[in-house]
Simulated scan of single mutants.
Amino acid sequence: MIKVVIADDHPLLREGLRRILEFEPGIQVVTEVGDGQGAINIARSLTFDILLMDLNMPGMNGLEACRVIRRERPEIGIIVLTVDDSDEKVFQVLQTGVAGYLLKDVFPKTLVNSIRKVYSGEPILAPSVTGKLLGQISTPSKNKNSFGLSKREMEILRAVARGSSNKEIGISLYISEKTVKNHLSNIFRKLEVEDRTQAAIKAVKLNLVHLE
């Protein structure tokens, strides 16, 4: 059972999300909160898997709450669900290491699929979000250090930066998802990062990948 917490300051939206998710097999909404501090309090007191987090809330906002929860409960998959798709906000949020970034006009099925993907350990780094991320990154450095990445690892890193899933990477490179995961573990270790979002950010900053 995937246990979900909803953090949003609009009761109507919380109710709508709950109604969507309660009809999905294997998903349970355990509680709802209306601000960032409430999300932190719940993360400190309850065991759950996925946090749907709004950004613009009264008191402590969602961005600050993401930072605290990621530090204290890194095993919780945070999916940001917001109306704010500004380049600056996307960049700030992705730097916290959240598992996904979705807009509130997302189709219900896409939201449900995203929850399942994050629960299975596959963060959602959509190509559109990657594009916004790249637009905020300053001029890449001239660093020639490859960090010991092999040719195959570089191929996978480029695919990650483009927003490809493990399944898509495996299909394109004719390797299994398990092999992709093994390569990603090595990439994270060599780049000294914790997840694919941080790997994509670092790869672009250090000019390890070039995306159009």
Rank of each mutant, 00 (worst) to 15 (best):
K190M: 01
D8I: 05
K202Y: 00
V83E: 05
R18S: 13
R162E: 08
R71Y: 12
V160G: 01
N145H: 11
R196K: 14
L21M: 14
E212R: 10
Q37M: 13
F23T: 14
Y101R: 00
V193C: 05
S146E: 05
V193H: 04
L102K: 00
Q28Y: 13
R14E: 12
S141Y: 07
M154Y: 09
S164M: 09
S164A: 11
Q95T: 03
G36C: 07
L63G: 05
M1T: 13
N186W: 02
I78K: 00
H10W: 05
L46S: 11
M1R: 12
I2F: 15
V93D: 03
R14F: 12
M57G: 04
G170M: 05
L103T: 12
Q37V: 11
V98W: 00
L12W: 13
E155R: 09
V129D: 00
F48W: 09
S165L: 03
G148A: 12
K151I: 07
D49E: 14
E153I: 07
I79E: 01
V204C: 10
Y119A: 04
L52S: 01
A159Y: 02
V29H: 06
S146M: 05
E24D: 08
K178I: 08
V160C: 01
Q95N: 06
A161S: 15
G163M: 11
S120W: 12
S164G: 03
K3W: 08
L55A: 04
G26Q: 08
H183L: 11
E155F: 11
T130H: 03
F188Y: 09
D195S: 05
L211Y: 14
P108L: 15
K144S: 10
T82Y: 06
H10S: 04
K151Q: 10
R162N: 06
G100A: 15
F91D: 13
G38S: 01
